[in-house]
Amino acid sequence: MHYLLLIHDDESADNGDLMPEYTAYTQELQASGALVGANQLQPSDTATTVRVRNGEQVVTDGPFAEAKEVLGGYYLIDVDSLDEALEWAAKIPSARYGGIEVRPVVMRRAEVGA
C-alpha cells in the first residue's frame, strides 16, 4: 500500500540543522525499497491558494489554513501495512518536534493492476 507521510511542524521553531538526519533517513528508506517519492517544501509564506467560485478564480496569499504547524514536506512510501508506515513516520526527524500525518493513498484499479 502507498502511504503519504505529511510532515507538519512549526517553521518558526529553531530545531537546529536536521538535514544530516533527513539525508540518513532518506537513504535508509531508499535502501529498504519503500521509498516512492519525497520532497521538502519552501516555507509556507511562499504558498498561494487558488479557489474557483462561480467560474471566477480567486487567488490569495498564504496556505489554505492558518495553523501553528504547517506542511513542510512529505514522503510517499510503499509498505505492507499501517504498522510499517507508522514505524517509518516515527523515524522522520521532525516527528520529535511536530507531527507526521499518515494518509493511505487511494489506489485505483489501473494502478493496482500495473
Binding site: 501495512s81 499501517l82 508506515a85 493511505p104
Partner: peptide, 14 residues
C-alpha cells in the same frame, strides 16, 4: 480496510 491496519501479531519492537 482503507488505512491498511494489519491482521497479525505486531513486531516484537511494538
Amino acid at each position: 480496510r482503507d488505512a491498511g491496519i494489519p491482521f497479525r501479531i505486531p513486531a516484537d519492537t511494538i
